[in-house]
Design a protein around this nucleic acid. Structure first.
Lengths: 206, 206, 206, 206
DNA sequence: CATGAATGAGGATTCATTCAT
DNA sequence: TATGAATGAATCCTCATTCAT
């Protein structure tokens, strides 16, 4: 019952912070949406900032959890990579408001927030990237990935491509931006392949 | 002399909006930084919102200008692609605050701003992407790029990689995230190349 | 306790709006005078305008209440007319600030305020006039008043005389502007009476 | 040409101050309406307050002028009284905005304005009342008016009735509020007359 | 004389935060 | 714990007034 209120507040915050700009969201609205008293928020969060931060961070945690589970499942590297990316794409879609918070407020926390916040945020983000980079390291070990770039760097680029797919390419038809096509672009690049063009590959993938 | 003040205000806004969160920037600060009276801002902008928007949009315009110029210069496809990406990276670096505004407030404008703003914003962004996608189309025509993905989509992915390079990989040493390495990743993918590994290529590039 | 604050605010507003011009009254002053926080005003009133309007309207209501009570008491027409006018004069005197608000802002509300405000205001004023005109109608029925002018019109004129007495003649000694003399002027006119000059009447009235 | 601008400014002020509330009128609007530069206003008036005051006062002066002319014309007392009232009514109608200024701001000047303004304003108003009261004194001398009330007091009451006619009774048909009926009410009162009821008199008056 | 761009003091309004219940 | 009425610091914005041209 206690945790219930805390959870309702965070859900409301995730929705509202992801829908409007942070300073356009009043705690009154959050309280109303969560169906709790305005003062109740201060029982669980020290601050508006804290509410925003914890909401975003908890989303990170959930995502890391999911990623680790998916990436840890047995199978060939490519299969696991595909599954993981599918999971990320799915997460971005279902938790779109949260995604938005992370995108537009996240970096600010790293610079504006006190050193404490900065530190905590950095750690979470790092954790998420690591979930992906660990998988990539296995790919490297298996000789399936180039080793001239650090796994962490490759992981960031892969996440960047997925971000682009879900955010900038939002209006495009799903077929033009399937997670498989992102993975293909990531692995094989934009140069045309003589041996196995994407069109044939795609057919095999479905 | 008139445009002078307007320009000074926008410069101050670009810096401040890029440094702090929007609602942490007071118009008093903007006025002070621009060395104009508080009321003067309202001679050129209807609103705090308007100031933010116009500042961001004008940045887009400048960037489009630069991109078109660089992309239009003669030369081989790869050279021009490299040059264009170098330019984008340079722009992101020099105009970091502006970049920040676009990243964290931009998408919000598309949803919060009235349909008028939304429309204008979308058009600017589209223009920017087109500058890149036109170049890519030429690469396709020259048989240097895969044609199973629309040029516009590839352009977004490329910009996404560059964004990752300049933003998420900010802390990394320049050597690990040269624009050349981004282009290489974009063109050849993450799969190891037997013929010419990146490490050798990089050596040749310097 | 809640209504307490609302009431204190309206009292402060009545005093201040009646003392200074509307735009010379700051809500800070109102809050201070009412001994509440500045923000508290906005819990009960949407606007400075709303505060002004509600303050004025509530005064109207009080006055209507008083008028109806006095006018409804039994007695001869003249007696009741005298009593009613005495009451109006008394009200104007005790609630001078409120009176001022109604005089100088009232008509503006009818034109500046939205149709909603205009409507409400008109209704209140009409109610007040009716309280008087009903009494006059009884006088007409009793053959004590001329019937060639509508009761409502006569009521307005009577109120106009009382207004003049309390406002324009404010500096004059009470003896020169007793409510009895106003009623006498209203009933008998400015033409000299052969049968019973006012001077004798006045002596009898005291 | 110089006086032209000053005059245009006052005309614009008369219209605007009479249409909106004083603090809703900006000097920018006045300048625009008068088709002069904003700074020009300060060449002829020291202040917004001064502009308001001079505009109102100049109206008073015009009215006094008219009243004196009309009241001074030869003829029987009643005729001259009728003519004067007709003039006042006409003035109120044509210069409605000015009338409004005097009504809603006038009294404030007497209390809020410095002692200087107060003094000047009082003098003007007194002058206007005197124009009427002088006429009434002649009526008294001719035995046509009761002498138990000072002429000045009677003058105020008469003006009060005319004010009511033009302001509070604004919506009524002209026939119900002719200046003749006001004069009749003023002279003969609200008591029914056995000898000559108003209805017959009215017929004779037309 | 005339102008209107520039200014900044001043005030309405919002909203995070507190605290008595 | 839970609440929401109360608060006032903080900020956007207006507009009377000035002054360089």
């Amino acid at each position: 019952m206690q945790k219930d209120k805390r959870h309702r507040i965070m859900q409301a915050a995730e929705f509202l912070f992801g829908t409007k700009r942070v300073h356009e969201v009043t705690l009154e609205q959050v309280a109303q949406q969560a169906d709790v008293g305005k003062g109740t928020i201060y029982l669980y969060f020290t601050d508006k900032e804290d509410l925003l931060f914890q909401t975003a961070v908890s989303g990170f945690d959930e995502m890391c959890q999911i990623l680790r589970e998916k990436a840890a499942q047995p199978g060939m590297f490519r299969e696991r990579l595909l599954r993981t990316c599918a999971e990320i794409v799915e997460f971005f879609q279902v938790r779109r408001p949260l995604f938005r918070i992370v995108l537009s407020e996240g970096e600010r926390v790293m610079e504006s927030g006190g050193p404490g916040l900065r530190q905590r945020w950095r750690k979470r983000r790092q954790t998420m990237t690591e979930a992906v980079s660990e998988l990539l390291e296995q790919g490297m070990a298996a000789g399936e990935l180039r080793t001239d770039m650090p796994a962490r760097v490759l992981a960031e680029y892969l996440l960047g491509l997925l971000r682009t797919r879900s955010w900038e390419l939002e209006g495009w038809p799903e077929s033009q931006r399937s997670h498989a096509s992102v993975v293909d672009l990531f692995l094989r690049g934009a140069t045309p392949s003589q041996a196995a063009p994407l069109s044939q590959q795609n057919e095999r993938n479905h």
